[in-house]
């Protein structure tokens, strides 16, 4: 349900003029809800940024997700 919860907020943000981007763990659900913009990660539920100990990779995921806006 997490993709839907954030997707509902993402929808309204876009409609009021705030640009948005999201991490996606389960793309199939994001496709189902027509999520606006998302970066697909190859990780399991509960690990949106991958390995909790790999700070550099976590930064990379955040960077890639935000750069979808460019």
């Amino acid at each position: 349900m997490c993709p839907q919860t954030v997707g509902l907020v993402q929808k309204v943000c876009e409609e009021v003029g705030i640009s948005t981007t999201s991490i996606s763990i389960i793309d199939e659900i994001n496709q189902k809800i027509h999520a606006h913009r998302y970066y697909s990660v190859p990780y399991e539920l509960g690990f949106p940024l991958g390995n909790p100990k790999d700070f550099e990779n976590q930064i990379k995921i955040c960077r890639n997700t935000i750069q979808l806006l460019t």
């Binding site: 943000c13 009021v16 999201s22 991490i23 996606s24 763990i25 949106p48 997700t65």
Partner: peptide
């Protein structure tokens, strides 16, 4: 929530579903 973001003059929101 959106009013908070507007009041703070947020330009970009990063969403993190778990």
């Amino acid at each position: 929530i959106v009013h908070i973001l507007i009041a703070d003059k947020v330009d970009v929101v990063l969403f993190v579903p778990i």
